[in-house]
Amino acid sequence: MSDNLKELVVYIVQTLVDEPGQVSVTEVQGEQAVILELHVAKNDIGKVIGKQGRIVKAIRLLLGAAGAKAKKRIVLEIIE
């Protein structure tokens, strides 16, 4: 499942940023949750977060829904 979710984040984010080549997601297994760490170019961070965090919030909601089906909690963190 988490491979697909990583792809989901990469797919959405690569479309939104100026430097798609710099987008990557690494997975950290937590005890309760799967943590996805998203790496993007420094100049693209704002494009992923969005005004008042709207974009990242929307991505987190989609991950939440996908996680709910697999009974997993998914955490998305943006790393500089």
Partner: peptide
């Protein structure tokens, strides 16, 4: 039901992302 989410917020999120992309 999963896609709609609480008060439709997941569906809103999907729509927002699709429009952005």
């Amino acid at each position: 039901a999963l896609l709609i989410g609480k008060k439709g917020q997941t569906l809103e999120a999907l729509q927002y992302i699709v429009n952005l992309m």
